[in-house]
Nucleic acid binder design. Structure first.
Length: 103
DNA sequence: CGTCTGACGATAT
DNA sequence: TATATCGCCAGAC
């Protein structure tokens, strides 16, 4: 089994602290797979109710839609509950809320 | 093996 | 900041 990239993604996502968000590209990079940002989102869509998927957003600090706007709204509410504020355009200020894995 | 699709990213304008 | 275009990789057909 070696290294299952997907599993690696999940582990990283689980490490995202409360009140912080991470981008798909960032996760892919941390997993050692730069450029696989799409795969990260793909892995999440597979079915992972156990991970804080709501803390994963795209590089613009926006919640990526997956054809179910309802879930997007839910994610937003959940993030706001963790003190993550959204801008007027519905975007998060990554400069302030992006998770810094280094610590 | 070629083609299309997708919870993305970076760059150019 | 918004839109357009290209690049990226894996999976489905």
């Amino acid at each position: 089994m070696d290294f299952d990239p997907y599993k690696r993604f999940y582990a990283i996502i689980r490490n995202i602290p409360r009140g912080r968000v991470a981008t798909y590209g960032q996760i892919a990079r941390l997993a050692g797979l730069p450029g696989n940002a799409r795969q990260v989102g793909y892995a999440l869509s597979t079915c992972n109710d156990r991970l804080p998927w709501h803390r994963v957003v795209n590089a613009k600090g926006e919640i990526s839609s997956r054809g179910t706007p309802d879930a997007v709204d839910k994610q937003r509410v959940r993030l706001e509950k963790e003190k993550v504020t959204f801008g007027k355009a519905g975007r998060i200020r990554l400069a302030r809320f992006q998770w810094n894995p280094k610590r």
